[in-house]
Design a protein around this nucleic acid. Structure first.
Length: 853
RNA sequence: GCCCCUGUGGCGGAAUUGGUAGACGCGACAGAUUCAAAAUCUGUUGUCCACUGGACGUGCCUGUUCGAGUCAGGCCAGGGGCACCA
């Protein structure tokens, strides 16, 4: 018998799909649409196993929905701008474009070998002028609507990548890509007004019921809404005020000092005449974000010599400090310190000997002075004149009401979310289409001049921005006055590229950035699939972009992704040689004693923990090799089986082998049974009974369950049921009757249909063997007949005092009395009851009988 | 510190949402086939005991219930997110 040759068969069907343009789609109002999108990859050179998992899941959904009658958009493209290309240019002397396009070519080939149902005619790369030119157009439209602005601001400077990072891109004080300690610098920056959308972005989360709860929660925390009050403190012996933000106006009577940020205007105005302040400000800047982690505990400050007047307490003056724990870009950059009820203020007050008063009674009315710990909980207000006796909650309102009356404060909602700085001092990114003119200032480019293309002749031997070093590129004329002017040399953060690609995919060659006809039909994305690492940045930016594009009239929706699924990572065992160095999995074999050893030297190897695959720990497997060895179908099958898709899965060779075995088994079964099945199109036999009926029922039950499981993305579950069904298929012994033959064909066709989305090549191969001349990819999903999925007898568990004593077979929906009689008649049940009187018998129809004694 | 998630055999994990715990896969063991092996097929496989039966068993403790992996309260462990955010 011919053995299944995966390589040959997979290539055959891949070209069949290609030739027939099977997966090319367009707007078609006669069908319901379904947009499946996986987060597009960065073209690093090779796909990794995480991609295999991600794209396989998307492909199953895509093929499944297709078979269910949807017009499915399933595109693929490249997140192709970014620093690695410039690093490659510097290190290997390859132009970023050349490097990127070569990587794309290779990864496209690798993805194609997976047999994905992608519409390659919609492929796009963000580094192509045909993409980024439209992005520049969007930028100008945003500029026109006031959604982008330029301001001088403190930025996070990555000294290794020599670029600016958004707050979100700084993790533990380090650049998210380079890992370098980030410094503070002041630069002119282009900003998106994402903070203006804080409330909308927060509210919108409630509508995203097909998003993971934890992603919504993470975004909610990130937006960080808080409600409190702005309070104006008069600065003593001056006409100036100091405005602070607080969420605890109820503790105003506990105020003992004030603190402002190093970058606060008040500090700035004082530092020229006060060397101590100047020195402290410099120290704060040196610290940057970077050393915060290290110096976390240390609350420091210097007195300004100024005092603020307490709004409620006549004659009470509070010293004003500059403090390192007050942030300029949160609230107003100034606070009042209430050491009795705030940890930071408490630490600060201890260090600088400030008064620590209690204004909130502790649990059980504790009014004793604050000791070693501040009290942060709720309670009754004390020592606070008109607030006395109120709860903390009521006191907040009362304090604000009073402040409003006195015209020295107001209720305020504050958000943690800040505007998104998008300027990057890089070459390999989308040029910001504006011109700086001595006469006219900052002028947007004319739309007809777009795209502003990157120059090709650039050098990467100097640090800093190659666009800035270019001898002529930035020389231009002012779009407004026509005089010589210079181009903006900053390029856009690559997160801009990925904030709208889902919309461009709908009509990637359209002359407008987005085609209204196409996006109105396709968007929002019905199922978006990607890694949890994008829970905040990419997803929040895309949600902002959708709103901004709605503002400019480009689209008519707020939420770009109605369904989101975050898949888990792929992990693998780690291996270490005797000298402690990491080893690749393929360097390790098991010796005769069952111990792991090095394949060449035979030296013993330590098996370490199961960890996320990483190049540094060498616990990686190469998808290319896997597909070569097991075939794409087996690789796809394995990444879907076993582990739930949202959890991490461990890649094991034995698991992959298991998938391979199943593929062989099914193929063999099909080949061996071609003689035993009814001809294609034979009408249903009237004589389907016995084993044949049982098989039919099993087939229809399986279809029902698998359909349900895939709908919920429970791929591991679907696969488990298919395995069970495979067993039933193998065990079926037909007697050659028409009924048996008919049932076997039906079962085998259903099996083929169900494995189709997961193992598409094998599916097509068997489908063809079964006599079909329409592709499986173009055939409808098997439909379960409801009556065949229900049994007319059920097995009921009989418990005595909650413990299982017997099981009985009864007719479905049997009368409760009869079930009870049968249950009590069981010898084991009688034995368990013994001499005890039966107090009660609970009968749950078709489920269980519980005898209470 | 605050918030969230997870905890089930040797391992990955099922469990119709309060109703027979351990489906399915991996591994292991035994057998068939084979000169032998690979491949394939068939069994067995939660723990314990006085083994044709029974006891125990879903991180730990308490509770609700006829009945708890599932619900409630309190712990423990692992993972993730957030944080000088006023």
């Amino acid at each position: 018998m011919s053995r299944y040759n995966a390589k040959q068969v997979e290539a055959k069907w891949q070209s069949a799909w290609d030739e027939k343009n099977t997966f090319e789609v367009g707007v078609d109002h006669s069908k319901p649409k379904y947009y499946v999108l996986e987060m597009f990859p960065y073209p690093s050179g090779n796909i990794h196993i995480g991609h295999v998992r991600n794209y396989t899941m998307g492909d199953v959904v895509s093929r499944f929905k297709r078979a269910r009658g949807f017009n499915v958009l399933h595109p693929m493209g490249w997140d192709a701008f970014g620093l690695p290309a410039e690093n490659a240019a510097r290190d290997k002397k390859i132009h970023p474009a050349e490097w990127t396009y070569a990587n794309i070519a290779n990864m496209r080939r690798e993805l194609k070998s997976m047999g994905l149902s992608l519409d390659w005619s919609k492929e796009l790369a963000t580094c192509h002028p045909g993409y980024y030119g439209h992005q520049q157009k969007l930028f100008l439209e945003f500029l026109d609507k006031g959604l982008v602005y330029r301001k001088e601001s403190w930025v996070n400077w990555d000294p290794v990548d020599m670029t600016v990072l958004a707050n979100e891109q700084v993790i533990d004080g380090r650049g998210w890509r380079s890992g370098a300690l980030v410094e503070k610098r002041k630069l002119n920056q282009w900003m998106f007004r994402i903070a203006d959308y804080s409330e909308e972005l927060l509210k919108g989360l409630d509508t995203l019921d097909r998003w993971p709860e934890r992603v919504r929660l993470m975004q909610e925390n990130w937006i960080g809404k808080s409600s409190g009050a702005k309070v104006n403190f008069k600065i003593a012996d001056s006409d100036d005020n100091l405005e602070i933000y607080t969420t605890r106006p109820d503790t105003l009577f506990g105020a003992s000092f004030m603190a402002v940020a190093a970058d606060h205007p008040l500090t700035q105005s004082l530092k020229d005449d006060n060397p101590a302040i100047a020195e402290f400000v410099a120290e704060c800047h040196r610290m940057g974000t970077s050393e915060e982690a290290i110096e976390k505990a240390e609350k420091k400050g210097v007195p300004t010599g100024l005092y603020a007047e307490h709004p409620f307490i006549e004659g009470k003056k509070l010293p004003i400090f500059v403090a390192n724990f007050v942030l300029m870009d949160y609230g107003t950059g100034a606070i009042f310190g209430c050491p009795g009820h705030d940890q930071r203020d408490f630490d600060f007050a201890k260090k600088y000997n400030q008064e620590i008063a209690r204004v909130v009674a502790g649990p059980e009315g504790d009014e004793s002075p604050i000791g070693e710990e501040p009290y942060m909980g709720p309670g009754k207000i004390i020592n606070s004149e008109f607030l006395n006796g109120l709860t903390t909650e009521d006191a907040k309102e009362a304090a604000i009401t009073k402040l409003v009356e006195m015209q020295s404060g107001e209720k305020t909602i504050n958000y943690r979310l800040r505007d998104w700085g998008l300027s990057r001092q890089r070459y390999w990114g989308c040029p910001i289409p504006v011109v700086h003119c001595d006469n006219c200032g900052t002028v947007p480019e004319k739309a007809e001049n777009l795209p502003i293309e990157l120059p090709e002749d650039v050098t990467f031997d100097k640090p800093g921005n190659p666009l800035d070093h270019h001898p002529t590129w930035k020389e231009t004329t002012c779009p407004s006055c026509g005089k010589p002017a210079t181009r903006e040399t900053d390029t856009m953060d690559t997160f801009v590229d990925s904030s709208w690609y889902f919309a461009r995919f709908c009509a990637p060659r359209d002359e407008d950035p987005v085609s209204r006809e196409a996006v109105d039909y396709w968007l929002p994305v019905d199922q978006y699939i990607g890694g949890i690492e994008h829970a905040i940045l990419h997803l929040l930016y895309s949600r902002f972009f959708s709103r901004a594009m709605k503002e400019t009239g480009a689209v008519d929706f707020e939420e770009p992704f109605s369904g989101l699924f975050t898949q888990g990572m792929v992990t693998h065992e780690t291996y270490r040689a005797e000298d402690g160095t990491w080893l690749f999995p393929q360097e390790v074999v098991t010796n005769d004693d069952g111990k792991p050893v090095h394949i060449e030297t035979g030296a013993s190897v330590t098996i370490g923990g199961v960890e996320k695959m990483s190049k540094s720990k060498k616990n990686v497997v190469d998808p290319g090799e896997i597909i070569d060895k097991f075939g794409a179908d087996a690789a796809r099958w394995f990444v879907l089986s076993d582990s739930p898709p949202d959890r991490d899965m461990e890649w094991t060779d034995s698991g992959a082998t298991g998938a391979w075995r199943f593929k062989q088994r099914l193929y063999r079964f099909a080949v061996e049974n071609l003689e035993n099945i009814a001809p294609l199109g034979a009408s249903e036999s009237s004589a389907i009974e016995g084993d044949a009926l049982a098989l039919r029922k099993e087939a229809h039950k399986t279809v029902k369950h698998v359909t349900d499981a895939i709908e919920k993305l429970h791929f591991n579950n679907a696969i488990a049921r298919i395995y069970e069904f495979m067993k039933a298929l193998s065990e079926f012994k037909g007697n050659g009757s028409d009924g048996d033959k008919w049932a076997l064909r039906e079962a085998l066709e259903m099996m083929t249909g169900m494995i189709g989305p997961m193992m598409p090549h094998l599916g097509e191969e068997i489908w063809e063997m079964l006599g079909h001349d329409v592709l499986l990819a173009d055939s409808p999903w098997p439909v379960a007949i409801e009556e065949l999925t229900v049994d007319n007898t059920v097995t009921i568990a009989v418990q005595v005092k909650g413990k299982l004593r017997a099981t009985i077979e009864v007719a479905k929906d049997e009368d409760a009395k009869k079930v009870e009689e049968e249950a009590l008649a069981e010898p084991n049940v009688q034995k368990a009851i013994g001499d005890n009187p039966v107090r009660k018998v609970i009968v749950v129809p078709n489920r269980i009988v519980n005898v209470v004694i």
